[in-house]
């Protein structure tokens, strides 16, 4: 199994800074914006971005949460093995707020579709945007595109994109594996 490094920790740090700046361009002081990390893997990215926004750009009272989509997936009873749910923490109402979904890899778009339904349980957002670290082009099952992307990858279906976070695997890196 061949494994190729796509991004190292330096490249990821630069990308995170850029994504944070792009968010500021569109959301100013984040008074009316909430960041939602999609469980399980988008949560790390959301936390990192929140840290950068608060520490480097002095954004105050940033609202962020995490959303689990297990019960909203469209492949329930169609999967071979069962999936364990993760925690949802949204301690605020998203009614009339701008919501930014944050995930590590955008692949088929099905997780995002599930998240679009799931978030409605917390109110009706005024707008929803999508931020991803890796956008896998040519692999979408649904008409969903990111508003912010760290890096675009042309991977074929059998290939796997693996995002490692310092919090879990000691170092930040993105690999492609086939």
């Amino acid at each position: 199994m061949a494994k190729k490094k796509l991004l190292n920790s330096n490249a990821i740090a630069i990308i995170l800074q850029r994504l944070a700046c792009q968010l500021i361009e569109n959301h100013n002081d984040f008074k009316n914006t909430v960041l939602i990390g999609l469980q399980p893997r988008g949560v790390f990215l959301a936390k990192r971005l929140a840290v950068i926004l608060e520490r480097d750009y002095h954004i105050k009272d940033l609202k962020s949460g995490q959303l689990d989509i297990t019960f909203f997936r469209d492949d329930f009873r169609r999967r071979g093995e069962s999936l364990e749910a993760n925690k949802t923490t949204i301690d605020f109402i998203v009614e009339d707020k701008k919501v930014v979904f944050i995930d590590d890899v955008l692949f088929s778009g099905r997780s995002v579709r599930a998240a679009l339904t799931a978030i409605q349980s917390f109110g009706r957002p005024s707008a929803i945007e999508l931020l991803v670290l890796i956008d896998r082009r040519f692999s979408r099952d649904l008409p969903i595109q990111p508003n912010y992307k760290g890096c675009q990858v042309d991977a074929i279906n059998q290939e796997k994109v693996i995002v490692q976070w310092q919090e879990q695997q000691k170092t930040d890196a993105v690999y492609i594996e086939n």
């Binding site: 019960f71 925690k87 949802t88 349980s121």
Partner: peptide
């Protein structure tokens, strides 16, 4: 947690 949301329903 789901049944304490404003909308307490999932489509599973």
């Amino acid at each position: 947690e789901v049944i304490n949301r404003p909308i307490k329903k999932v489509p599973s």
